[in-house]
Each structure stands twice: as structure tokens, then as C-alpha cells.
């Protein structure tokens, strides 16, 4: 389901906050790459987000830095946990390889943080 189908976004009854894509992006800033000290968003790993507010479902498209990522389970688990806190009932993580993740996708802020950790990119 795509964004814009709903003139009136549904609200989460418990918290009365709308389940929007912007909110998912915001929440994903709290989820770190398990092997890096910066968030998935700053790593440029979030390729897309789509929300179905009625179903309280969200699909997150993630591009992994390597095909051999040893932390796929951890990433899926962390993303799911964080988005459930936002009020989603169904969280789906999709792995995307195309276009491949590259270092250029790391945000300015991410670069700065990484350099503080002594990691050059």
C-alpha cells in the first residue's frame, strides 16, 4: 500500500500519534548497525519505508553493507523491536541489493561520528 491513499492518516489509539513514514525514519535513527557506532539511517542503509496505518504494518527496505553481513538477525530484531515500540503490529524487513550500498551513502553526520571513533570512510 502506498502513501497518499489515506486522506486522513489513522492514529494509534494508545498513544494518539500517527503512524507515518516520517515517524518510522525518526525511530530508525535509534537503531544502530550492530557493528558500527552509528544508526542505520546515518549509514544510508534505509532504502525505503512504507506504512500501512490501517493494518499498523510497516515494511522497511534495508541495503546491507556486505552480502556476508553476519548481523542480519540482529538488525531485523532491533528494527522490529524499535518499530513495535512505535505501535506497529507487523514489521517486515526486506533486504535490497540494488543499487548496492556504498560508502557514499553515509550521511555527513554519520561520517563525523565515525571519525570520532577512529573509523575512516
Amino acid at each position: 500500500m502506498t502513501r497518499g491513499n489515506y486522506a486522513m492518516p489513522m492514529t494509534d489509539e494508545k498513544t494518539s500519534v500517527q503512524l507515518t513514514e516520517a515517524r518510522v525514519w525518526e525511530a530508525l535513527k535509534d537503531v544502530n548497525d550492530p557493528e558500527m557506532p552509528i544508526s542505520l539511517v546515518d549509514m544510508g542503509m534505509v532504502y525505503g519505508v512504507s506504512v500501512d496505518p490501517q493494518e499498523r504494518a510497516v515494511t522497511v527496505k534495508l541495503g546491507l553493507t556486505a552480502t556476508a553481513c553476519p548481523a542480519m538477525d540482529f538488525i531485523r530484531e532491533d528494527v522490529t523491536k524499535r518499530l513495535c515500540q512505535e505501535g506497529f503490529r507487523r514489521v517486515e524487513v526486506e533486504w535490497v541489493w540494488d543499487p548496492p550500498w556504498t560508502k557514499e551513502r553515509i550521511s555527513e553526520e554519520g561520517r563525523l561520528l565515525l571519525s570520532c571513533w577512529g573509523i575512516s570512510v
Binding site: E35, A71, F74, G118
Partner: peptide, 13 residues
């Protein structure tokens, strides 16, 4: 700094 971060992954594993 870098070593510590990676060890945390081993520990979690």
C-alpha cells in the same frame, strides 16, 4: 575504541 565496539558484537553473538 574500535576494538571494544567489535567485541560487543562477539558478546551479543
Amino acid at each position: 575504541a574500535k576494538i571494544d565496539k567489535e567485541e560487543l558484537f562477539h558478546l551479543r553473538h
